[in-house]
């Protein structure tokens, strides 16, 4: 019974999204970046330069047919590097969001399902974490752990999970009153089994929506950390790092900092627009309002 409603939901969702041109466009951009980053070594014009091989005699060539995005301070093709950078940024986004979900969702579900003391303790901890300014906290964390892409990702994940805990808890609280959950309780299914067998699959939709939107925040935050030297390290083609390196050449060789930044913007925009549409579609309240006007 439950499965049936879900697929009906999904059908409506897909239908509505198909009607939303912006959502389709952003989905297209996301797919494009994913494909491009998977096949990066095969499609970039200069794979070795993408990975960091310098060509000192070709420094700072403006965009041309051979180097559509120009070359950087070591003569490397900026286009190739931007495409390689897509791999890093998408990976960072997925990693941060997944780790946050893996930590946050079980905690939230457990808190929501069991209620009482467990709920109190877990939610107070969540509240404490939510009350930190997350970027500042991540900065302090990476600054002391030592700069690096991995440390940056860990620090972001640590500051991110409480949002999912809160979201999952809200889901658990509503779902646990459903008849089939009550039925399982009656026949003596253990609490944790119910949480992971029944609550988890049913709470997943809003979490995925939130995750999509967070992809963009995670990518932006990581690029920001790299920009101030706390994230990826040279010669990594990480976008934030490339903007940071290219910054001092901005006024003479604009292409070097501009294109990687544009890539960050496009990806973040696509994820945000898509998530925005998803939410519009999935949130019955806004749909109702839309229908009436």
């Amino acid at each position: 019974m439950n499965k049936l409603t879900l697929s009906k939901e999904t059908k409506i969702t897909l239908k509505l999204i198909k009607r939303d041109k912006l959502a389709m466009l952003s989905l297209l951009i996301i797919t494009f970046f994913i494909i491009v980053s998977i096949f990066a070594p095969f499609i970039v014009p200069y794979p070795s330069q993408g990975e960091g091989l310098p060509v000192p005699e070709k420094r700072f060539l403006p965009p041309s047919f051979e180097n559509p995005f120009g070359t950087d301070y070591l003569g490397r093709d900026v286009l190739s590097r931007v495409i390689f950078g897509a791999r890093i940024s998408l990976f960072v986004g997925i990693f941060v969001v997944c780790v946050a979900i893996i930590i946050g969702v079980p905690l939230g579900l457990i808190a929501g399902y069991f209620g009482g003391k467990v709920d109190d303790v877990l939610m107070r901890i969540t509240d404490v974490f939510l009350s930190f300014p997350s970027l500042l906290f991540a900065i302090a964390l990476v600054a002391t752990l030592g700069p690096g892409l991995f440390n940056a990702m860990i620090s972001l994940s640590i500051t991110w999970w409480p949002w999912y805990a809160r979201l999952a808890r809200a889901q658990a609280v509503t779902i646990k009153e459903q008849p089939y959950i009550l039925a399982s309780q009656v026949i003596g299914v253990k609490g944790l089994t119910i949480v992971f067998r029944h609550l988890l699959p049913n709470a997943l939709t809003p979490i995925i929506v939130q995750g999509t939107m967070d992809m963009s925040s995670a990518i932006l935050a990581e690029a920001g950390l790299s920009f101030i030297g706390l994230g990826a390290q040279a010669p990594s083609p990480e976008w934030g790092l490339m903007v940071s390196t290219g910054r001092i050449y901005l006024l003479n060789y604009w292409w070097f900092p501009v294109f990687p930044g544009l890539a960050i913007f496009l990806v973040a925009l696509a994820f945000n627009l898509f998530g925005d549409s998803l939410r519009d579609v999935l949130d019955p309240k806004s749909r109702k309002a839309g229908g009436q006007m």
């Binding site: 963009s216 932006l220 690029a223 920001g224 501009v258 930044g261």
Partner: peptide, 12 residues
């Protein structure tokens, strides 16, 4: 969605 550090450079 716009990375502020990049947007700052663009305005400059």
């Amino acid at each position: 969605s716009i990375p502020s550090f990049w947007f700052a450079l663009i305005t400059q």
